[in-house]
Amino acid sequence: MDTKTPFFKKRLLGIKIEELAIFAVFYLFWAFAYHVAITVNSRSWNEGERAILDFAEFMNSVGLDYIIKAILTYPIWWLLIRKLKKWTYTKKIILHLVLLPLFVIIWQQLYYFACELVGFGHLRGPASAWDIYIPALFYALQFGIIHSYNYYIENQQKIRLEGELRTVALKSELSALKAQLNPHFLYNIFNTISASVPPKNEKTRHLIAELSDLFRYQLKASQVEKVPLSEELEFVNKYLDLEKERFQERLEVEVSVEKHLMSEMIPPMLLQPLIENSIKHGLSSLIEGGKISINIFKKNEKLHFEISDTGIGVKDKEAVFDKGIGLTNTKLRLEKMYQSRLNLSDNMPKGLKISFAI
């Protein structure tokens, strides 16, 4: 766990400790309420009813009852909220129709076994029907609350994400207005500069042409929602060619992608900000330079991307998103368009790996 994360914000198998604390308080409340209800109701019982119930032992068994319920609830909570997070609520409700009777049956058998093991009393005969009805009702109540809470959290995250996207869009529009230039005028300037370069400096002309192509692709990216993967990689390669002129032999690049994936459609300008981040924050400070690896493959009907470097790496991976707009914009685009996460992990033997799937 991240030591900088507050204790109650840390997660245990995907569930926040503060949520588990609220969960524990919820159980203590209902156990106490059950105690009170039985105690008050017992005043109207006759001696025979008290003897049948074995009242003192039954009161002790209430705590055991809710401990077993809590133990059985936690894995179901983890399954629905963590493992099956992307399932629709309709599918989860159908799953509950299977889990509810299992929960009741398993709880009843464990509860009765535990009571008999330690000598506590429990309902017997026809009265044991209450040990089916009440746990079923309690199951529906607690998971109704859990799903309502989870829906509220998801909705708040959605509102926050939409707000961040609006902020990013506004900043982008302002930046575009500040730097607005007629693209054709810009291309003409590039051509003029290229024409003024002496023929013997053919390499310089080539670099100017590649820079012109980068601007042309960026203009296209602002006008279309998706481009073929081949075009995005061509743009990335031109960008890396310019970076190689700066780093010389200090920068090594490896691209791994199968040819049949080149026609896949992806959002433009998706990879370049990630590669630029790896070069700027991972490799540029190293005297010996390093290697950038781009790996693209398809698995389970999704296109997977991995950009790794052999740079200095990142210790606080959450704080990276606060340092620049490149990673943040890409993160927000992935969340908004594909509900996909931008994952940062340590590369081996050193450096950073950025991965996502669409």
Rank of each mutant, 00 (worst) to 15 (best):
N46M: 09
L211A: 14
N41V: 10
I81S: 08
R82L: 04
H147A: 07
F8P: 10
I17T: 07
G119V: 01
V118W: 09
L177E: 03
P198A: 09
F7H: 08
I81V: 05
P268L: 09
S256H: 14
G48V: 12
T310S: 15
A176P: 00
E249Y: 07
R11N: 11
S256T: 10
Q142T: 05
S308W: 01
L97N: 02
L97E: 00
F32P: 02
L97I: 04
L344Y: 13
N150V: 10
I68L: 14
E18F: 12
N237S: 11
E234P: 00
L20H: 02
G326V: 03
N191H: 15
K259A: 15
I193Y: 13
L137T: 10
L13S: 04
S293G: 08
H147C: 03
K9Q: 14
H184D: 11
E254Q: 09
W87N: 08
R50A: 12
M262K: 13
G313L: 09
K298V: 10
Y112A: 10
L64V: 15
V253K: 13
T167D: 12
S128D: 04
G282S: 07
Q142A: 05
E254P: 07
H96A: 12
I354G: 12
L303A: 03
Q156K: 13
M1I: 07
K83S: 05
N237W: 03
L79G: 05
A114T: 04
N46P: 08
E258R: 04
F247K: 09
K259N: 13
L332A: 06
L28P: 03
N343Q: 09
I287S: 14
I94C: 08
K203L: 13
I15E: 15
G326Q: 04
Q223W: 05
V104K: 05
W30E: 12
K85E: 09
E318R: 06
N347F: 01
Y112D: 06
T3K: 15
P228C: 06
M265D: 15
S128Y: 07
V314R: 12
L352Q: 01
S230L: 12
Y27E: 00
